[in-house]
Design a protein around this nucleic acid. Structure first.
Lengths: 82, 82
DNA sequence: TTCGATTTGTCCGTATGTATC
DNA sequence: AGATACATACGGACAAATCGA
């Protein structure tokens, strides 16, 4: 999944993967994305890498993080399923 | 009713629900609100969560608690009085 | 008085998540 | 990569006080 020795930094690869999932609607608005630990296990990367990727998603406005609660898909980040 | 994995902590969701009921006059001043156990059963959450929510209502001055008696709507929390 | 039911008060341990170092 | 801290939530257990039968 994530290429550790390629030209693209792992955290940026993860950004693209997660962004695609969000835009595809895999996770609904105001619903939590997988926890940092789950992403660490799924992609076999370090937690710091996950956090860096999530920070980018946050800057892009795709997600928002509530301390001690989790990271959630931004309300305006997905196509309407309704 | 209460979303356990949403951005807003369950105890804060309960605060808003109970505050609305009080301000709407569902429970009269100096009358007891449902017991902790009843709220636990109604909302399907843990007692600790209920207690935390009630503590917030107490801080807001909406209710007052008498040990071993119950929690009551504060005298100045509703409109209809005689 | 004794008993049981009710209600708040308190403490324990476990789990999850993010925050920080 | 690991350790610690903090906030939240759950479940259980017990105490203390109140009330009524």
């Amino acid at each position: 999944m994530i290429e550790s020795d390629g030209p693209v930094p792992p955290y940026l690869q993860l950004v693209e993967i997660l962004a695609e999932r969000i835009e595809r609607g895999d996770w609904q608005p105001n619903r939590p994305i997988p926890s940092e630990l789950q992403l660490v296990q799924e992609f076999g990367i370090a937690r710091g890498t996950v956090r860096r990727a999530v920070a980018v998603l946050r800057e892009r406005g795709l997600v928002f993080t509530v301390p001690q609660r989790g990271t959630f898909v931004a309300p305006s980040s997905a196509a309407s399923t309704e």
